[in-house]
Computed example of a mutant assay.
Amino acid sequence: MKLVVHVDGGARGNPGPAAVGVVVSTPEGEVVERRAETIGEATNNVAEYRALLLGLERARALGATEVEVVNDSELVAKQVGGEYRVKHAAMRPLHAAALEALGGFEAWRVRSVPRAQNADADALVNAALDAAT
C-alpha cells in the first residue's frame, strides 16, 4: 500500500522552540492521519529531519509498503536522495536514521516542494508551537 506523507519541521529561532507536523494521505488525497508534536529546542534542519522520521514511523504503523514523502526542505530531500553530502556532524545520525527507516519500505521517494504546497503540515507545526507558548 502506498501512502503520501507531507512533513514539515520548524523552529522559532535557530535554534529555538521547535515542532513537527505530519499529514498522511492516500495517493488520491484522502487524509488518514494528522500529527503534530513539539520537540523542544532544536534548529530548523533538525526539526525537518525529526518530521521526516515521525512521518515514516506513522506511514509504517499505518501499513505502508511504499511511501512518497513531500516536504519543503530542499536540503533534507537532496541529502536523503544522495545529491548533497551531510556536512554537519550533528545531522549525520538523523540522516542515517532516515535512510534506515526508508530502507524498510519496498519503494520510496522524498521530494521538496514550495511551502505553499505543504501548507497543511506547515499549519500543524505552527499550531503546535502556538499551543506550547
Rank of each mutant, 00 (worst) to 15 (best):
R92W: 08
Y84A: 11
A89F: 12
V4Y: 01
E28S: 15
S73C: 06
V67I: 12
A123Q: 14
E37Y: 07
R60S: 11
A19E: 03
G13C: 06
A61E: 15
E48A: 13
K78I: 04
D72A: 10
V86F: 13
A90T: 13
T43E: 03
R60M: 07
R12Y: 06
L54C: 05
E33R: 12
G10P: 01
G40N: 09
L94A: 08
E100M: 04
M91H: 12
R115I: 12
G13D: 10
A47I: 11
L52N: 08
T43P: 04
A132F: 04
A121N: 10
A42W: 02
E66Y: 07
R34G: 06
G29E: 06
E100P: 04
V5C: 10
N118Y: 03
V67L: 02
A121L: 07
L62M: 05
L94E: 14
A127R: 11
E100T: 13
R92G: 08
W108F: 12
L102Q: 09
L124N: 04
T133N: 01
R85I: 05
L53Y: 10
Q117L: 14
V80P: 05
E66G: 09
S73H: 11
A127L: 09
T133H: 06
E33Q: 12
E41W: 06
A61R: 15
R92E: 15
N118D: 07
R115W: 08
E41Q: 11
R60N: 06
V69F: 00
V46M: 12
E28M: 11
A64D: 04
V23K: 00
D8G: 05
N126D: 15
P15A: 05
E68V: 13
E83W: 13
V46S: 01
K2T: 13
S73L: 02
L53W: 07
A19Y: 01
P15H: 01
E66P: 02
V7R: 00
T26Y: 09
L94C: 08
N126P: 09
A123T: 10
T65C: 04
T38L: 01
A127F: 04
E66L: 07
E41L: 07
G63P: 06
S112Q: 10
A19F: 04
D130T: 10
V5N: 03
N14S: 04
K78H: 14
L75E: 08
V80L: 14
L62W: 00
S112N: 15
N44A: 11
D72F: 00
E41K: 03
V110M: 03
R115A: 14
S73D: 02
N45F: 02
G55T: 07
V80G: 06
A51Q: 10
V67T: 07
G55D: 00
A61P: 02
T43V: 10
P93M: 09
A42V: 13
H6C: 12
G10S: 04
E28Q: 14
A19D: 02
V125A: 04
G10L: 01
A51W: 00
V69L: 01
E30Y: 05
E57C: 05
E41R: 12
Y49N: 09
P27Y: 00
G104T: 13
I39V: 14
